[in-house]
């Protein structure tokens, strides 16, 4: 955690608790700080609360107690405050959630025009630059249904970037993709990390966590069990539970954990 001590905190989460209707405790006193340009990877078994944590960060879920501060603005429940936070926090979803009745261009234009008040021409220019960045210049006029999963997800990333967010959240962005298109989305995400985007990434892609992540957080049962630099996390996990999880997800014993097996999912 000493790698970026001098940088400003972008996300501060203090002691948040989230209970779903029905009584399921999704987040159990979670605290977390994310610094500028930091890439934090959140892993853990399903139901561990990692997606819920992400969804709380841009107000898609309400918290019961605790505090979330994004770039100095405390997230409270007023609609106006939420909109302010959301324009600073981009989110990419597992199921892409592109608007099916709009072309790629229109998908990316929408919030620029509607929220940022850009003219059509300004938005078009920004959009074409973003499409070039994700390698889809030729798909501007395509509808989501005409694109592959990987292409849709890249459009979704461009759509979130169009707001010039201070933070990007990725909620299992590659989990719904065919194996052959996972790589292209991960490449875009790695590019963002290289460009200095602050990112919180929920993923099962250990290769990405090791390669692009500054920090890895392991969650289980709504709690953060381990929070370490990505090198430490993979070479020397402190918690027994983390070792067991890594063992399961990498399909091999911990001793083999020297980095070479970590790319399994990408190699296939």
């Amino acid at each position: 955690m000493n790698i970026s001590q001098h940088r400003q905190d972008i996300i501060t989460v203090r002691d948040i608790v989230k209970t779903y209707p029905g009584g399921l405790l999704a987040l159990d006193h979670v605290s977390l700080t994310v610094r500028q340009k930091e890439v934090v990877v959140v892993i853990g078994p399903s139901g561990s609360g990692k997606s819920t944590l992400l969804r709380c960060l841009n107000g898609l879920e309400d918290i019961d107690s605790g505090e979330i501060i994004i770039d100095g603005i405390p997230l409270d429940a007023t609609p106006r405050n939420r909109l302010a936070i959301r324009t600073e926090v981009g989110m990419v979803f597992q199921s892409f959630n592109l608007f099916p009745h709009m072309t790629a261009l229109q998908n990316i234009n929408l919030a620029q025009e509607q929220v940022r008040g850009k003219s059509r021409q300004e938005a078009n220019e920004a959009t074409m630059a973003l499409l070039a960045r994700v390698g889809l210049t030729d798909k501007a006029q395509a509808y989501p249904a005409q694109l592959s999963g990987g292409q849709q997800q890249r459009v979704a990333i461009a759509r979130a970037l169009a707001m010039h967010p201070k933070v990007m959240l990725f909620d299992e962005a590659t989990s719904a993709l065919d194996p052959e298109t996972i790589g292209e989305v991960l490449e875009v995400m790695k590019g963002l990390a290289r460009d200095g985007m602050t990112m919180v990434v929920v993923t099962h892609e250990m290769g990405f966590a090791r390669e692009a992540g500054d920090r890895v957080i392991f969650m289980e049962n709504g709690r953060i069990l381990e929070d370490a630099s990505s090198a430490d996390f993979f070479s020397n996990p402190r918690q027994e539970r983390t070792r067991a999880f890594l063992g399961q997800i990498l399909c091999g014993p911990i001793p083999g954990l020297n980095g070479t097996h970590l790319n399994m999912k990408e190699q296939t």
Partner: peptide
């Protein structure tokens, strides 16, 4: 209309009104 459409629009900072007008109602109408 799938919940994800609301969430995507909200996550872009669209208001409830804009989300209805630009995202939800055009799809529902069809």
């Amino acid at each position: 209309i799938h919940k994800g459409q609301w969430e995507a629009a909200y996550s872009l900072g669209l208001s409830r009104q804009d989300t209805y007008r630009r995202v939800i109602i055009p799809q529902a109408l069809r």
